[in-house]
Amino acid sequence: MAKTILEFEKPIAELEEKLVEMRKVSDSLHIEPEIKIIEEKVNELKESIYKNLTRWQRVQLARHPDRPYTLDYIYLMTRYFIELHGDRGVKDDKAIVGGFAQLGDQKVMIIGHQKGRDTKSNVFRNFGMPNPEGYRKALRLMKLAEKFNKPIITMIDTPGAYPGIEAEERGQAEAIARNLFEMSKLKVPVIVVIIGEGASGGALGIGVGDRILMLENCWYSVISPESCSSILWRSWDYKEQAAEALKLTAPDLLTVKVIDRIIPEPLGGAHKNHQEMADTLKAVLLEELKPLQKIKPDKLIEQRVEKFSQMGKVIE
């Protein structure tokens, strides 16, 4: 896998490179003490950089091309996954995947946005931007989960619903709206996890649930910082300011109660260790599922509607 290094990670990468070189020659030169010093320095640097990320830096981490995507989590967390395809109307949207799987001792339905890793797979996945049939497939699978009384886990990671001619013709807006409407009255528990980018309606279209979880280095908002910059500042150059103003990170969203819980990532981001990230997520999901399954369907729906009703802030 090609490693992508973000601008703010460069000092770390440089030191790590130096370490590799030093280790190569350490036997002949006896420089272990020096190596130790640099190792400590790397750790200090990592701590100081990753604990003080700006909002825009987090956006970059959320988009990191080496980050685990929905199918990675499914393969790392579950067994017996059967992917289910198609909306039964138009086609199979490759930007949303889903199916039943065994997660620990639980049988669940997992649905999520899916991005590609390289140009070819990104074109195949439409860069994780669903068309209406993606949302309709997701809803079909949710109804299937409801029929068999299995909890639903959705994973959000999209730069947005696709803005295209066919998407409009086939009712992008209606497809998303329908999902919001139907998801709010599903009789089974729904856990939503933001695993990367959560851009606007395209994200929310599979984002109505009983518990909203968010990985540490993700963003979720009404618009991307770039588009916000282009509209409000009339220039693409204010994305950092837009990211700050939108308050789109996990800690921000926990404060305004849009999300319920932040899931920690390995130091440096989820892409640094896929297995560790998946193990953490799996443990959290199993822990979150237990109490939800004890709630009766009517109560569950009532609480879900109430949860979203509480969101927002007004002055009387």
Binding site: A177, L180, F181, E182, S184, K185, S200, G201, L204, G207, V208, Y220, S221, V222, I223, C228, I231, L232, A245, L246, K247, L248, L253, V256, V258, R304, V305, F308, S309, M311, G312, K313
Partner: peptide
Amino acid sequence: ARMMEGALSLMQMAKTSAKLAMLSE
């Protein structure tokens, strides 16, 4: 949705749709 209220604006979509689901019930 209104940009200046960020994710909270986005959540109004879910809120109004959820209420309409209850109306429909």
